[in-house]
Simulated assay, not measured.
Amino acid sequence: MVTLIDTLAARPADLRHPEKRNRPESPVLRKPDWLRVKAPGSGQYNVTRAIVREKGLHTVCEEAACPNIGECWSQKHATLMIMGDTCTRACAFCNVKTGLPQPLDAEEPAKVGLAVAQLGRNPLVITSGDRDDVHDGGAAHFAEVVREIRHQAPATTIEILTPDFLRKDGAAEVMIDAKPDVFNHNLETVPRLYLKIRPGARYFHSLRLLQMVKERDPNQFTKSGIMVGFGETREEVMQVMDDMRSAEVDFITIGQYLQPTRKHAPIDRFVTPDEFKAYDAIARAKGFLMVSSSPLTRSSHHAGDDFARLKAARAARLSAAR
């Protein structure tokens, strides 16, 4: 039987990178004015970058070519990407390289804990690529990183942005039991587009993962996000909102998809700021504790302010229910 590992290892090296995947090229559309950001380069940005380099860490800010890197790094907010810089999936939207990752680094949890203490950033977001090559999807390693941060920087509020742990029995429970403050897993797009945009994942599995968090630990905040501009309809976006609320998701993020290279999925259209405002109002009416809906919204953008607002919103809702 040919396994995933065999398949990945047999690929030519250049096909392990998103920009060289065997996909037809499509033009990268010119960004409208509301999507333009300043190039990074502040003093604090350089300090953050130096710490990341010194500790040998990866960040999704760089790997996924996030447009907000200048703003976030100037505030010492780097979203750490653990378990290597290579993902075993090949999602059509993502700039993280695809291939057979290196073995997990047993020293990484301690290194990350030390780096977090040095950055002094609170809250912190930790994410990873999919590790389908590991028996538990890397859940135990991910959980150990959370525990090490609790040990070395106990005041840090931790948000995890996890893979889906598809076909990894027990992995979700390991992650939930690590007790992050916010459990984030992105649905990314509407169900109709999964085979095109997120072919290695399953929409209802991801939805079930979010639901499991609330069943196992109702006190953990849950968060999920989608990108728009792939060709989804307004009605499909609203259905995803309803599905998230059925899973008791607390916080939804909605942002514009930006095509990293000509080999990635093309942009169907740029959604206007007014449309994002409309999605914001609809999501709030559907009962989310928090909504972030704007062209430049990304999953971990403004995580510090958002966590404080999440706690305040929950407290206000509980008070109103009494």
Rank of each mutant, 00 (worst) to 15 (best):
A171I: 13
I158C: 07
Q152A: 06
Q152H: 07
A155K: 13
K168S: 10
V145M: 00
E148F: 04
H151Y: 01
V174E: 10
L161I: 12
D169T: 14
D169P: 11
A155F: 15
D177K: 05
E148K: 10
A155M: 14
I149L: 12
I158Y: 06
V145I: 09
P154N: 04
P180M: 15
V174Y: 03
T157H: 10
V145G: 00
I160R: 09
Q152P: 01
M175L: 15
R150I: 02
L161E: 10
L161Y: 00
G170F: 15
K179P: 01
V146T: 01
P154F: 03
I176M: 02
A153M: 03
K168C: 12
H151V: 02
D181M: 01
I149Q: 09
L166E: 01
L161K: 05
D181K: 02
D177G: 02
I160W: 13
A155T: 11
E148V: 09
T156R: 06
D164F: 13
M175N: 08
I149Y: 09
H151I: 01
I160H: 12
I176V: 15
V145D: 00
D164Q: 13
R147G: 01
L161N: 04
D169G: 07
P154E: 03
T156W: 06
M175A: 09
I160S: 08
A178D: 00
D164A: 14
D164G: 11
A178K: 10
I158A: 12
R167L: 07
L166P: 00
P180S: 15
I149W: 09
D169E: 15
D164W: 13
M175E: 04
A178P: 00
R147P: 00
D181L: 05
T162C: 12
I160T: 13
P154M: 05
K168R: 15
V146P: 01
Q152S: 07
V174Q: 12
E159V: 11
P163Q: 10
Q152M: 08
T156M: 01
T162L: 11
E173W: 00
E148C: 10
I149K: 12
R167Y: 03
A153I: 11
E159C: 08
F165D: 06
D169Y: 11
Q152R: 14
A155D: 13
I149N: 12
A172T: 05
F165G: 05
L166G: 00
I149C: 09
E159H: 05
P154S: 03
D164T: 14
R150D: 04
E173S: 08
I176F: 02
A171F: 12
D164I: 15
A153N: 05
K168M: 10
E159L: 10
E148M: 11
G170P: 11
K168A: 10
T162I: 08
E148A: 13
T157W: 14
E148D: 13
I176C: 02
A178Y: 05
A172Y: 02
T157P: 04
L166W: 03
A153L: 02
D164P: 12
R167I: 00
